[in-house]
Amino acid sequence: MLLVKSFSFAVRIVKLFQYLAKRKQEDVLSKQPLRSGTAVGALIREAQNTESKKDFIHKLAIAQKECDETVYWLELLKETEYNYGEEFLSIFENANELLRIIKSSILTIKQKTLHPQFISHHS
């Protein structure tokens, strides 16, 4: 689920960048969410190939930071008149949802790592 959602989010971020470029508003401010927003999915995919839970959590934590940075850039775009209606708000909500899912995933994995006997009896 996280892989699919993060990839779909990256596609939406690329389309936002393309939209801004078509309107001749592609600049440093629009490149920032492109970089951080597409990094989220790449890091989540990379996490799938880690060799330890510790490394997996580390990669997800970096993805979380990139997602939070993307939320920041989207907020800045919104507050500086780059808000382009419902589609923009939808991407913003999508970013916040993805951030919540990543945070929740990290917490769940940490709990399973710290208390494997509890999880195995109650899963």
Rank of each mutant, 00 (worst) to 15 (best):
L2C: 00
E87N: 11
E69L: 07
P116Q: 03
L99K: 06
H122T: 02
S90I: 03
E87R: 02
Q48G: 06
F7R: 10
R45I: 10
K31H: 11
I102E: 11
Q25A: 12
N94P: 04
R100I: 05
T38C: 13
T70K: 01
L16H: 01
T113I: 03
I106C: 09
R35A: 15
T70L: 08
T70C: 05
Q32G: 04
Q48D: 15
N96Q: 15
I102D: 11
Q32Y: 05
L114Q: 13
Y82T: 03
K65D: 13
N94V: 00
F56P: 08
K24N: 15
L16S: 05
K65M: 06
Y72N: 01
F118I: 12
Q111T: 10
F118E: 14
F92Q: 07
I62M: 12
K5R: 12
Q18P: 00
F56L: 14
V71C: 13
V71I: 15
Y84R: 08
S30K: 01
I109Y: 05
I119V: 14
N94E: 15
M1G: 13
I109S: 11
K5M: 11
L2T: 02
Q111R: 14
L98N: 04
N94I: 00
E97A: 06
S120E: 13
H121F: 01
V4K: 14
H122I: 00
K110V: 07
K78R: 12
K112V: 13
L74A: 04
L20S: 09
E66R: 01
F17Q: 04
L16W: 02
G41W: 05
K24E: 13
V4E: 15
K53V: 11
F92V: 01
F56C: 09
I91G: 05
G37R: 01
N49T: 09
S8L: 14
K59Q: 13
Y72Q: 00
A95Y: 01
